[in-house]
Design a protein around this nucleic acid. Structure first.
Lengths: 221, 221
DNA sequence: TGTTAATTTTGATTCAGATCAATTAAAGCG
DNA sequence: CGCTTTAATTGATCTGAATCAAAATTAACA
């Protein structure tokens, strides 16, 4: 559901503007404050975006996987507003933004598509705002897992079994919870036989009940 | 800070595509689920956007004033994802989106400007996510007031004295708090002589201390 | 492969904010 | 203008998540 391109669309963009870049686990794709030149389409891997607060702690603003587009926030001021860090070895395709704008002038469908992607990011953020503003810990985690599940499914992976790339602390940061609370929520869902947790390996045993846990189905579509 | 156009920019757009529309207090500019055709530039007034949850309660996703652009979320699916309701008599300028895209193809600076506006909305949402994910009640209210203050200032109004257009409940919904908590936070700030509250009338007595209250200055820029 | 560091789980306690409840104040309206 | 409805304040209590603390597990790496 989050900002995404299908394989074919990535291909089209790739033909036009392609400059691949590898980032290894823990490496930065870009840093907050750095000059914005290009958007990045993720070809493989898994990244997080986060902002550094002055006290040194960081707040995760999103997790991003293959097919998603990073850097949309930087268009506003020509400066990146967050760090993008690889949670596993990743490969991205650099898309010089000026070029993208230029090309989209002559290909209306590309322009339209790009606008839809930006808009989808806004809708996604509103979903997260709803989650943070109105859901309790267990509901947040259920939403989060269902969101990951759907994204893995869309990419041809299992929707019921996957490995988390991020720590409990990073999940907590994203969901507005402390890591202990995240851990407890995992344990609770496991006690109810809704999921099976083995450290980073998650198995969803009863997706319907997980959806019920989330309650408010309008969130994180 | 939120998505905005200056007077001149509104003028430019207005020359190209202008169809004004008045919405009286309590009226809908658009409803969730309705077909998306146009963006709306606010010429005067004050609106809120909100999503209706299935239980009938509504969650406020934003407050919007003169010069701001509404409807960006609807581009994604050609369907509005939220309700936009006037909190006071308002006037908007309708901007048919297809026309905007067409024109922006020939005016690069307009296209660029539009992209910046969408991006700014994403940045704004990230700020709200940060607020909801990591700030406590008093800090949230301080952020909210400072944000309003700055927006009023940008529009030529007093930054230290203004009337709220929304209820405590709507503020709470936006900030992820209950209305009682919002009320208590107002009282607390007043007890500390940082602000003076007279129902909907707010006077900021010590903007520096209000900023300190907010703490983490990276939020809601 | 052993040693250290990081991560995760679980328990006990505390606290901010929700909830429940009642009063006061303001706004709509016949 | 008085009556009704809606909004706001304030208090008392309860609760979910934070915090503090310790143990267990996993990962990193020399």
């Amino acid at each position: 559901m989050p900002v995404g391109l299908n394989d074919q669309e990535i291909q089209v963009l790739g033909d036009v503007v392609s400059h691949k870049r590898k980032i290894q686990r823990g490496g930065y794709l870009h840093r907050s404050g750095s000059k914005f030149q290009s958007l990045f389409a993720i070809r493989s891997g898994f990244l997080k975006t986060c902002v550094l607060e002055e006290d040194g702690r960081q707040q995760v603003t999103g997790f991003h996987m293959t097919g998603e587009l990073l850097g949309l926030d930087a268009i506003s001021t020509d400066t990146h507003t967050c760090d993008a860090i690889a949670l596993e070895d990743s490969e991205v395709c650099e898309i010089p933004f000026a070029k993208l704008e230029e090309i989209s002038r002559t290909i209306p469908s590309l322009m339209r598509h790009f606008h839809k992607i930006m808009s989808r990011e806004i809708v996604r953020d509103h979903g997260v705002m709803l989650l943070l503003g109105s859901m309790k810990a267990e509901e947040r985690l259920a939403s989060f897992l269902l969101n990951l599940s759907r994204r893995f499914l869309m990419r041809g992976y299992s929707e019921s079994e996957f490995n988390l790339r991020m720590t409990r602390e990073e999940i907590g940061s994203y969901l507005g919870l402390k890591l202990e609370t995240v851990s407890r929520a995992f344990s609770k869902l496991q006690d109810e036989n809704i999921i099976t947790v083995d450290n980073k390996h998650i198995q969803i045993n009863d997706i319907a009940r997980l959806r019920l846990k989330m309650g408010n189905s309008s969130c994180i579509t």
